[in-house]
Amino acid sequence: MLKRTNIVVIGGSAGSLKVLLVVLPHLDKDLSFPIVIIMHRKASSDSVLNKLLAHSTQLEVIEIEDKMTMLPGCIYIVPPNYHMLFENKTLVSLDFSEKLNFSRPSIDITFRSAAEVFQEGAVALLLSGANSDGVNGLKEIKSYQGTVAVQDPATADVDYMPLQATLHVDVDIILKPTEIASYINRLRI
């Protein structure tokens, strides 16, 4: 049975920016769902990352603000030093609670929230990184019948994060960076 995709959540840490810069230029403009990117970065980092990502894609790139409404075909970046949660299928909240896995934003927190709100309509993708944030979140996505995708560890600058995912989660698909964009494009209704 073909599942309808309502959200794509992408988590990444060390080595993931490079992957995003390969993926974003090839994303189609008329995606039928929003994409949310949770990247570990320094609390003090400015808007350089957003600009870099915005320049690499024809989709609109938006840094999330509290109680923002998400639209299909847009890319949403979780701001540094906040966790991000879904209130419902369109409305998002920010949260400044304790770090998880030494991280704020934490990929686990947003993945779990996506799993609960979107259930089988959630697709989560975990990229390169040096800690295990995201692995528990992928399990949650899976337990709600969502789809779990992981960057091929062999292609990751830092393979710890995707490797942990493949070891501990029943992963649906393993993707090389060059395969990710067409995978996401095909999720369109």
Binding site: L85, F86, S93
Partner: peptide, 9 residues
Amino acid sequence: YSKASLKRR
């Protein structure tokens, strides 16, 4: 209060 955050708390 926002439900998503409260649920976590």
